[in-house]
């Protein structure tokens, strides 16, 4: 092993053998935003063999406050995040093979990527994609590490198929209307704690030290100085449709995915959730108003506008994104606001 990893191999649970294992593994990282860029940097520095990064977005000025790797030049060049991450990671460690995929992560687009993957790291910004990852993990018996953050709050949980409960056991339904970074803001230290936990779990899984894997669901709030690691041993459900005795992997079916359609001749994309939601439009309007959106509303819909982009949101969760024909951009906007 070379000098580069000397301080990592000195750490006994890794050692030279662990470093060789890390070097031989392939990680799939879904998302190259705040959690994603920091995870990509970590894995590159740690000497992962191959890293595939999937992201649908490009670098914007408002990302620089918390998204590692990216620079002002990337913003000027409007680089896709996956490409920008690859470029910067190459400067850090030429030994690592990095594959950048600029695309929307869905059941259909992600499943073909799983061949030879040892671990999936969640760096997405919405529960729909996480439930897709959760089902893919169970179907293909690949561990994944959930991570999420908003404001000063973060949480993380490691899912090992056949051992731990899965995210569907814990959440049962996709939570309705949580806070997102676009409504509650986000401070960079909250990102870092989540990433650090994901990174430590990743190292354990990559060196196959499964006894060391964290059992609990960890939550913290750095501003309110709260921390809890919640045991989940009894939460595994035999009838869970994702990890139970007769799994159907419900989130892999197209009916359970958010739909986007370009509305002909109108420069508008319609986004439709898989099942009708019951949004609290007044609360959402207040949150978005506090977040710098211009909000107009009536009892049936909200119209919100910011930086030239306008979205109309109906109570059942359907939305029209005006001024674009890019379905993936429209879906990103929608999920950034609605979680």
């Amino acid at each position: 092993m070379n000098e580069r990893y000397s301080r990592q191999t000195l750490f006994h649970p890794i050692g030279d053998r662990g470093q060789e294992k890390i070097r031989s593994k392939h990680v799939l990282l879904i998302g190259a935003g705040a959690l994603g860029s920091a995870n990509a940097e970590f894995l590159t520095r740690a000497g992962i063999g191959k890293l595939t990064v999937v992201d649908r977005d490009y670098v914007e000025e408002s990302n620089l406050q918390r998204q590692q790797l990216y620079t002002e030049k990337d913003v000027r060049d409007k680089l896709p995040k996956a490409e920008a991450a690859k470029m910067h990671c190459n400067d850090i460690n030429r030994e690592v093979e990095i594959e950048a995929l600029i695309m929307d992560g869905t059941a259909q687009s992600l499943e073909p990527l799983l061949e030879g993957v040892s671990l999936i790291i969640d760096a997405t910004d919405n529960f729909e994609t996480r439930m897709v990852i959760n089902d893919l993990s169970q179907k293909h018996r690949i561990p994944w590490i959930y991570g999420a953050c908003v404001g000063s709050v973060g949480m993380t949980f490691t899912i090992i198929p056949g051992v731990t409960p899965c995210l569907n056991c814990l959440l049962r339904s996709i939570p309705i209307q949580g806070m997102t970074c676009d409504t509650g803001g986000i401070i960079s230290p909250a990102v870092q704690v989540v990433v650090a936990h994901q990174a430590a779990e990743a190292l354990k899984i990559l060196v196959e030290d499964f006894d060391a894997v964290r059992q609990g669901f960890t939550t913290f709030d750095l501003w309110r100085n709260q921390y809890q690691s919640m045991k989940v041993g009894k939460a595994k459900k035999p009838d869970c449709l994702s990890c139970g005795d007769a799994p159907t992997y419900p989130f892999l079916t197209p009916e359970n995915a958010t739909k986007t359609t370009v509305l002909c001749g109108r420069d508008t994309v319609q986004v439709r959730p898989p099942k009708p939601r019951r949004l609290q439009l007044d609360k959402l309007g207040n949150d978005l108003n506090g977040s710098g959106y211009v909000v107009k509303s009536n009892p049936f819909l909200l119209s919100v506008e910011k930086e030239g982009e306008r979205m109309v949101i109906f109570q059942d969760g359907r939305a029209l994104i005006h001024g674009t024909k890019d379905m993936s951009h429209a879906k990103a906007m929608y999920q950034r606001i609605l979680g």
Binding site: A34, D125, F127, A148, V150, M155, G178, M179, C181, M230
Partner: peptide, 10 residues
Amino acid sequence: VAFIPPVSGG
């Protein structure tokens, strides 16, 4: 009893 709101950002 602890109540913990899940978050989705990233």
